[in-house]
Nucleic acid binder design. Structure first.
Lengths: 207, 207
DNA sequence: CCGCATCCTCATGGATACTG
DNA sequence: CAGTATCCATGAGGATGCGG
C-alpha cells in the first residue's frame, strides 16, 4: 500500500491493513493459527502469489508472525497487536448487517466465519440469561455456541452436552443474531432454544 | 471493488468501503458535511478523478448522499448508515496508537482530524471528573475539546470561556490522549489543565 | 473559481503454470 | 505442500481540459 502521507490514525492503520485481502487474512487468523493451505481454503478466491505477498507484508509490519506449529510445520499466527484488530473487524461485521440481509446470492459460505460474526453481533445487546451451549448445524462439521456471562464463543463441537440444537440456513442464524443486535431494546425476545428434538427458536438469551 | 464472493460480513463491508480512499472520505464527512473542494483539501494526495469516482460509488451504495447545502451549492453528507462507520473507524484509530507514536515524519497534519481521534482515544478509558472546555492551539484555527458526561467533542473554538488552553505539538496531544487510553487502570492521571496562563498538564479527567 | 471528465503512464491485482 | 514466476487485465496517480 502506497502511503497516504497523512498524520492520521485511520490513514496509518489503512497503510498496514488497508490492502485488498489483508483484513480477511486477519479474520482467518482470529479464528485460530493456520497453515498456508488452511488460509488458501479459508480465503476462497485469493491468488496464491497474493497470499504469499500479504503474509510477508503483514509479518514485516508486526501484525502476524510465522512460527513452527505442532509437527514442526510452518504456521501463521497473530501477534498481540494483530489480535487487537478483532475490535475494528467486529465493528465492520456489525455494520454489514444491511448487506447480509440479502442472503448469500451465490457467495460461498464457510461455517468457521460464524466464530467471528455471532459473537460480534450478539455482544452488544444480547444479555445471557443463563449459561448455555447451543449446537449449530449448517452443513459443515458441527459447531457450538457457548454463551457465558463473559461473552459468546463459537467453536467446533467438542462433544459436550448441548442445551439445544439449531439446524438452519446460515443467513437465518445471522439474522437471528443481528436481530438480537438491532431490536434488543423493544422487548425481550427469543434467540435460540429447542423443545425436545425440534429446532424451534425460543428464549435462551434475553435482551 | 471487485467482489470477494464470500458470504461474510467483513468481506461485504470491504466491498463497500474497502477501496483505497473510501474510509478517508468517510472520515472527512464524519467531521461534517463538505463540498468537493473541502474534500480535496481534507484529503491531501487524492487525485481529483478518484475523488469523483469514489463519491459516485459511495453514493450509489448508500453511504453518503449528494444534496444542496446552504447557498444552493452541492455538498456531500453521510447517510445514517454511513455515519455508523464512526465505530469501526474509531476502532482503527485506537488500533493505530503504535503507528502514531513515531510522530508525523513529514506526513501532513490537519487539526480537524483531532475531532475524530481525540474522542476515539479518550472514550474508552478516560472518565470525566468535571465538565470542561479545553482550548487546543496547534497551529491552525483554534479548536476546543468539550468533555461532558456523555462524551468528548472537538470543534472549532466558538468563543466560549475556556477552562484551560493547551498549546502543543499534535503528536504530543495524541500521545496524551492515547495515554489516557492505554494506562488508565493503573492510577489517576492528569490529562489537560493549565495553571494561570501556562500550558501545564494537570488533572481534568481521571481514570 | 468549482466540479468534475479525459487521457496517459505505471503500479498492483488476478489467473495460471511451475518448482524445491 | 508451500510457495515462485510469468503474463495479462485492471486500477491508481498525475496532468490537463472544460463547461457552468
Amino acid at each position: 500500500m502506497r502511503s497516504y502521507g497523512q498524520y492520521c490514525g485511520l490513514a496509518r492503520s489503512l497503510e498496514v491493513v488497508g490492502d485488498r485481502w489483508n483484513l480477511l487474512i486477519v479474520r482467518q487468523l482470529l479464528i485460530g493459527p493456520a497453515r498456508y493451505r488452511d488460509l488458501m481454503d479459508g480465503l476462497p478466491g485469493i491468488a496464491t502469489n497474493l497470499l504469499a505477498d500479504r503474509l510477508r507484508d503483514l509479518e514485516s509490519s508486526g501484525v502476524l508472525e510465522r512460527r513452527l506449529g505442532p509437527g514442526g510445520a510452518v504456521e501463521y499466527a497473530l501477534t498481540p497487536w494483530g489480535s487487537a484488530l478483532r475490535q475494528p473487524i467486529e465493528s465492520l461485521i456489525r455494520w454489514s448487517t444491511p448487506l447480509m440481509a440479502r442472503g448469500p446470492e451465490g457467495d460461498v459460505f464457510r461455517p468457521e466465519w460464524l466464530a467471528l460474526a455471532l459473537p460480534a453481533l450478539l455482544a452488544t445487546r444480547a444479555k445471557v440469561r443463563r449459561v448455555a451451549t447451543v449446537g449449530l448445524e449448517i452443513g459443515g462439521p458441527p459447531l457450538q455456541l457457548r454463551a457465558t456471562r463473559s461473552g459468546f464463543e463459537v467453536t467446533p463441537h467438542d462433544g459436550r452436552d448441548l442445551d439445544a440444537t439449531l439446524r438452519a440456513d446460515p443467513a437465518y442464524i445471522l439474522g437471528l443474531a443481528a436481530g438480537a443486535f438491532t431490536l434488543g431494546d423493544a422487548r425481550t425476545f427469543g434467540l435460540i432454544e429447542v423443545e425436545g428434538d425440534e429446532s424451534i427458536v425460543r428464549t435462551v438469551f434475553a435482551a
